[in-house]
């Protein structure tokens, strides 16, 4: 392996690109769990939105705005459906979420055939990808800027959203009410809050974030749609949300970790390690991260109980 500046800068650059979809989805999951609903359908929402971004991209002659709008709208529809089943019909969030994830793969393939008469992969020269933004400091620090080439406005937006969501949840009245619902639904209800309405709206809006993530998948680094394009990123985002304790900053750090593991995985492909081994790195990393976090948490809890027992005696 070569450890020189270019190499590291390339890893960083690729990490930054890998992070955003996971980050956006784990922010969506965080918003939902802060409001007391369990959302595991990010995988499906991402797939659907990635697909409709490409469809509209193709038929509108490469309109970025329309593509993004279509992606976000389709993801919101799916999220609203999910919310309806979970919140109104009180269906099992796990089963409904998994149904949406698996059905999304079928829906996209089905319509890929309807629209493009192909299954599996769709790529076309008329498709227009998101514009890569040249960093404003590109001339002053070309080396540093290298790492930021290849990033689109959605990547930057995802970082800004971390801050925005943090401020929303912890500084605004509405955010504080949502968190209160997540902490104690009964109490919020007893104080006259329309809990289900808030949850429904939050879940539907979380679809916007997954929609943006979907756009990144099909119009970011590459411009194409391939079956199962989300490839488990939605599940990894779910774990990132757990590890980050649903706090925007924590979720950001966890996503960063998974972004690194993905980018390291894809970089190691160029070495003698085989593709299948490197491709499984993010998933193994997810399991390991879960284990380490649990050990840490257990130690903390044991310590607390021990201390309080001492106080008790």
């Amino acid at each position: 392996m070569i450890f020189n500046f270019e190499y590291i800068s390339a890893i960083i650059s690729s990490t930054l690109r890998m992070v955003s979809p996971i980050l956006l989805c784990s922010l969506a999951a965080a918003l939902c769990s802060k409001t007391g609903v369990f959302n595991i359908a990010m995988e499906g929402c991402m797939m659907i939105s990635a697909f409709f971004a490409i469809v509209v991209n193709y038929f509108s002659g490469g309109s970025i705005i329309l593509s993004v709008l279509a992606a976000v709208a389709s993801s919101m529809v799916v999220s609203a459906l999910l919310a309806f089943f979970i919140i109104k019909l009180k269906a099992s969030p796990v089963v409904v979420g998994m149904s949406i994830n698996t059905a999304s793969s079928a829906v996209t393939t089905f319509f890929m055939y309807i629209f493009f008469k192909t299954k599996g992969l769709f790529q076309h020269p008329d498709l227009v990808g998101l514009k890569k933004i040249t960093p404003f400091f590109a001339e002053a620090f070309p080396e540093l800027a290298q790492m930021f080439f290849g990033l689109t406005f959605i990547d930057y937006l995802s970082w800004i959203l971390v801050i925005v969501i943090y401020i929303f949840l912890y500084k605004t009245v509405l955010g504080y009410r949502l968190r209160a619902i997540g902490i104690n639904q009964e109490a919020a209800k007893s104080l006259g809050t329309p809990v289900e309405k808030y949850q429904f709206i939050t879940m539907t809006l979380s679809g916007v974030l997954c929609g943006l993530a979907g756009v990144l998948l099909s119009m970011g680094s590459v411009t194409l749609f391939i079956q199962n394009i989300a490839s488990g990123k939605g599940y990894i985002a779910m774990t990132a949300n757990n590890l980050g304790k649903s706090h925007p900053i924590g979720v950001f750090l966890a996503s960063l970790f998974f972004g690194v593991s993905q980018s390291v995985g894809s970089f190691l492909q160029q070495t003698q390690l085989k593709g299948q081994i490197t491709a499984s790195i993010p998933y193994v990393a997810t399991i390991l991260a879960t284990i380490f976090e649990s050990i840490r948490y257990k130690r903390l809890k044991e310590k607390r109980i021990k201390e309080s027992m001492k106080l008790g005696n």
Partner: peptide, 13 residues
Amino acid sequence: FGPMTVTENIVYN
């Protein structure tokens, strides 16, 4: 709301 402050609990809504 356990993890919140006293003030946040009292002024809710």
